[in-house]
């Protein structure tokens, strides 16, 4: 198995008001190249801290993180790590630097010192990849939240990273914008083979992931395929997460003696499952 990110016994501590808090506790994790991983957790579960450690913004207090074999602690390879692991944050407004879309997307490649022609190419293909090519010379200010966030993603993709880490990219968006982002990420994952690590507290977004991790108090408490993780309704509720409504419904039916298959998530599959039971009865 080829891992893009290897996390070995990592602990992250920070000091606030003279008290030491542990945000991430002795965590070990490998992320497979080309996979789509979703990390779930409520606020303060350590998921954002973990995300920022993946590209070296935060340095682990203990343990090591290897990105494509490069240690994130080494100062001289900092840029190498950042160009491999791109990061998108919650608020699109605070990530866009220029007042023209194409100039903003060009910011990353310009910093990498690429020749103008190649930057142009990368900007165009990145905008195309997120479906924003018609907005090349617009002002980000006039776009919707979902569109702005797609521009932010394009700005990262233009650096051609191996891996894309997104820290709650949909938290400030409306349902339509959220859908746009999640679809874009799946498309990038499939078509460009970019490894995606999506951090969120919306369970629906984990639906089509290859792997779901649940974090609580700086530890990973569940790890598996989406339907495997979601079956654990009690555990998820105990850490303050909501299970998808479909899973909850099937789970309740099963509890009451109906023989339904609880490892489906989408609405259509759930409907089919219920229909099967109804027809059987």
């Amino acid at each position: 198995m080829d891992n893009i990110i290897e996390i070995k016994n990592v602990t992250y501590e920070y000091t606030e008001d003279e008290a030491t808090h542990i945000a991430v506790k002795n965590l070990s994790l490998n992320i497979e190249r080309g996979s789509f991983t979703v990390i779930l957790g409520h606020n303060g579960s350590g998921k954002s801290t973990l995300a920022k450690m993946l590209n070296g913004l935060n340095k682990p207090t203990l343990g090591t993180i290897l990105v494509d074999g490069i240690n994130t602690l080494a100062e001289e390879t900092e840029i190498e790590v950042k160009r491999r692991v791109g990061m998108v944050f919650q608020n699109p407004d605070n990530q866009l630097i220029a007042s023209i879309v194409e100039e903003d997307v060009a910011f990353g490649p310009e910093n990498l010192g690429l020749p103008p022609k190649e930057i142009r190419q990368r900007v165009d293909s990145a905008l195309k990849a997120v479906g924003m090519e018609e907005f090349v010379s617009s002002t980000p200010h006039r776009l919707s939240g979902g569109q702005k966030q797609r521009i932010a993603i394009a700005g990262i993709i233009a650096m051609e990273p191996e891996c894309l880490v997104l820290d709650e990219p949909t938290a400030m968006l409306d349902p339509k914008g959220r859908r746009e982002i999640v679809d874009t990420l799946h498309k990038l994952n499939k078509e460009k083979g970019i490894t995606v690590i999506l951090i969120t507290h919306y369970m629906e977004e984990a639906e089509n992931a290859d792997r779901v991790l649940v974090m609580n108090d700086g530890e990973i408490i569940s790890d598996g395929k989406p339907h495997e993780v979601f079956q654990n309704v009690e555990m998820l509720k105990s850490v303050g997460l909501d299970v998808p409504q479909t899973t909850e419904l099937l789970y309740a039916l099963q509890k009451n003696g109906f023989k339904v298959n609880t490892n489906v998530i989408s609405v259509t599959d759930t409907a089919r499952e219920i229909k099967k039971v109804l027809e059987g009865v």
Partner: peptide, 21 residues
């Protein structure tokens, strides 16, 4: 937040920066 986002986009104070236009 902007500073962090800029760092993520390999900004290092303009050393070796090129321009698209």
């Amino acid at each position: 937040e902007l500073a962090e986002a800029m760092e993520c986009r390999c900004y290092n104070g303009g050393v070796g920066k090129t321009r698209m236009k």
